[in-house]
Amino acid sequence: MWLPWVSSTKGVDDIVPFIKVAQKQYVSGEGFKEILMFQGNYAGFTGYYNVDLNIKSASIGYWLGEPYQNKGIMARALKVFIDYAFNKMGLNKMEILIAEENFKSRALPEKYGFKEEGIIRDAE
C-alpha cells in the first residue's frame, strides 16, 4: 500500500477527518480537493495542496481505488488539474510527491512533462 491512510479507511466516518482538512485548506486558499466519480461510484480524488500564489507554486496529490485503475480516469483528471494550475491559476511550478517504487503513479506526471528532481529519504 502506497498511502498508509488507505487501509484504515473503511467507511464514511473514516473519511471525515480528510474532508475537514480539505475544507480548511479550501477556506484558507492553501488547497482544493475534488472527488473523482466513475459510473456513479466514488473512485478516488485529486487535489492541490501547499498552494502559494506568492511564489506561484503548488503540489498535486491523487489517489485512485484499485477497481478504477487502468481506465484512464486519473490521466484525464490529472491533465485537467495541471492545465488549470498553469493556465487559470497562473502557477509556474507544480510538485507531485510519489513513492519511489510506485511505477504506475510515476508514469502519469512523466506523461505530462514532469521531471524527477530528487528522492526524499525516510518519507511516507
Results as ranks from 00 to 15, higher is better:
2 W>A: 07
3 L>M: 03
5 W>M: 00
5 W>C: 01
6 V>Q: 11
6 V>A: 14
7 S>W: 09
8 S>P: 08
9 T>W: 08
10 K>N: 13
10 K>L: 15
11 G>S: 15
14 D>C: 03
16 V>L: 07
16 V>S: 04
16 V>F: 02
16 V>Q: 08
17 P>W: 02
18 F>W: 11
20 K>N: 05
21 V>E: 01
21 V>K: 05
21 V>C: 03
22 A>G: 07
22 A>D: 05
22 A>V: 01
23 Q>S: 08
25 Q>G: 04
25 Q>Y: 04
26 Y>Q: 03
30 E>Q: 11
30 E>W: 04
30 E>F: 10
31 G>R: 07
31 G>F: 08
33 K>H: 02
34 E>Q: 09
36 L>H: 02
37 M>T: 12
37 M>Y: 10
38 F>D: 15
38 F>Q: 12
43 A>T: 02
45 F>P: 14
46 T>A: 11
46 T>S: 11
51 V>S: 02
52 D>I: 05
52 D>Y: 01
53 L>M: 11
54 N>Q: 14
55 I>V: 15
56 K>D: 09
57 S>G: 13
58 A>E: 10
60 I>L: 15
61 G>A: 15
63 W>S: 15
65 G>A: 12
66 E>P: 01
68 Y>C: 08
68 Y>Q: 06
69 Q>A: 06
72 G>Q: 10
74 M>V: 09
74 M>A: 06
76 R>M: 09
76 R>Y: 07
76 R>Q: 11
76 R>H: 04
77 A>T: 03
77 A>Y: 00
77 A>H: 01
79 K>D: 06
80 V>G: 09
81 F>I: 07
81 F>C: 06
83 D>V: 10
83 D>S: 12
84 Y>C: 12
84 Y>D: 13
84 Y>V: 04
85 A>G: 14
85 A>I: 04
85 A>L: 12
86 F>E: 11
88 K>N: 10
89 M>G: 05
89 M>W: 01
89 M>E: 12
90 G>L: 05
91 L>V: 05
92 N>L: 04
93 K>G: 02
94 M>V: 11
94 M>C: 01
97 L>C: 07
97 L>F: 08
100 E>T: 09
101 E>V: 06
103 F>W: 12
103 F>K: 14
103 F>T: 13
103 F>V: 15
104 K>C: 04
105 S>L: 05
108 L>V: 09
109 P>L: 11
110 E>T: 06
115 K>H: 12
120 I>G: 07
121 R>D: 01
122 D>S: 07
122 D>N: 06
123 A>S: 00
123 A>Y: 09
123 A>T: 08
124 E>N: 03
124 E>S: 00
